[in-house]
């Protein structure tokens, strides 16, 4: 059904059309254009056109027509007979094997389906679906914390500063990334670490995904604080700096101690900045222009260090540190 001319379009909703057609409720008339099923089906029942069956046997049929043919062939002995006549037995066996595999393949969960819909390769989507920090419980907890923080911060506007939000927001991506790997948090860590997929690559795939979700949440929270303008975006560079530093330290100190030290260091820095603040309305040092510059520099340096230490994530040393 090249380009879906056989009714891929007519089979509205597409993928399950084949099954519906077997009972003849749609029929050939619904298959707009050319190679309709009526010609080969006879009666009121629709059948896969012979031309499509030839393409199917050659392996040349494309989706969505391919899905319709797969589904219909599973239920229609007549079309299977026609296919056996027109097809090369070897190609036919391959077709059955493919059909069998498709029927056997698991249905992806919500997150995985979303990633596939965004165009991600299925193997990468499965790797991300197994990331602990992308699980509903964690994402829900992050959203709840942010909502609470935004509510508290919004209640103290009137010319104030969104300090609580800015202090907390960088810690969430750091915690998410720290929770996305390691023997204590990833139940399949032991199997993953001895797999040929490079440990650093796996870590980066998960980090980018968790960072994207964390920054996305923080971004939405920022939009909920329009009264602070660009000041409410002061969390972004510290978030990148803390995450990169946490990972770099994790390579030497392990996945729990490294990020934990960074988190404690961030809080200590804020407490010190609060003590050193001169005016009540002034932003804390990390959220000034100079502070943001330092965050950017730290992020770059830590990312460089992380790349230098990447082999430790593959050799098991990051685990034993």
């Amino acid at each position: 059904m090249t380009g879906g001319t056989t009714g891929g379009a007519g089979m509205t909703g597409g993928t399950t059309g084949g099954a519906g057609m077997t009972d003849g409720t749609t029929g050939g008339a619904g298959m707009t254009g050319g190679t309709t099923g009526g010609a080969s089906g006879g009666g009121t029942g629709w059948h896969v056109p012979e031309e499509d069956l030839r393409a199917y046997a050659r392996g040349g049929l494309t989706a969505p027509a391919l899905w319709s043919a797969d589904t219909h062939l599973a239920a229609c002995a007549h079309c299977r007979g026609v296919l056996a006549d027109v097809g090369d037995p070897v190609a036919l066996d391959a077709g059955w094997e493919r059909l069998d595999a498709e029927l056997d393949a698991p249905r992806p969960g919500f997150l995985e389906a979303l990633l596939l819909r965004c165009g991600m390769a299925d193997h990468t989507a499965r790797l991300l679906a197994a990331t602990p920090a992308l699980r509903r419980s964690w994402v829900g907890a992050v959203a709840a914390v942010l909502l609470l923080t935004v509510a508290v911060t919004a209640g103290h506007t009137a010319g104030g500063s969104p300090t609580l939000f800015l202090a907390l927001a960088p810690l969430l991506p750091l915690a998410g990334v720290a929770l996305s790997y390691g023997p204590a948090l990833d139940p399949t860590y032991e199997m993953a670490v001895v797999a040929p997929v490079h440990g650093f690559r796996l870590l980066m795939i998960r980090t980018v995904a968790v960072l994207a979700v964390g920054i996305g949440f923080n971004g939405l929270a920022t939009l909920a604080l329009p009264g602070y303008g660009l000041r409410a975006l002061g969390w972004l560079l510290p978030a990148l700096a803390l995450t990169a530093t946490g990972l770099a330290l994790a390579a030497r100190l392990g996945p729990v101690l490294g990020p934990s030290l960074v988190g404690v260091g961030w809080i200590a820095l804020l407490v010190t900045a609060e003590a050193a603040r001169t005016g009540a309305e002034d932003p804390l040092a990390p959220f000034t222009a100079a502070g943001q510059g330092v965050s950017a520099l730290v992020a770059v340096l830590a990312a460089g260090l992380l790349v230098l230490l990447r082999d430790r994530f593959d050799s098991g040393r990051a685990n034993t540190a």
């Binding site: 698991p106 969960g109 193997h123 790797l127 032991e190 797999a195 997929v197």
Partner: peptide, 23 residues
């Protein structure tokens, strides 16, 4: 051996197969 609780047997083995570079 740890398992992701939400995975089926097929999905879990599929996950490990991906880790083993079967893309």
């Amino acid at each position: 051996p740890g398992f992701h609780p939400d995975f089926t047997a097929f999905e879990f083995v599929d996950y490990v197969a991906i880790l083993k570079e079967l893309t």
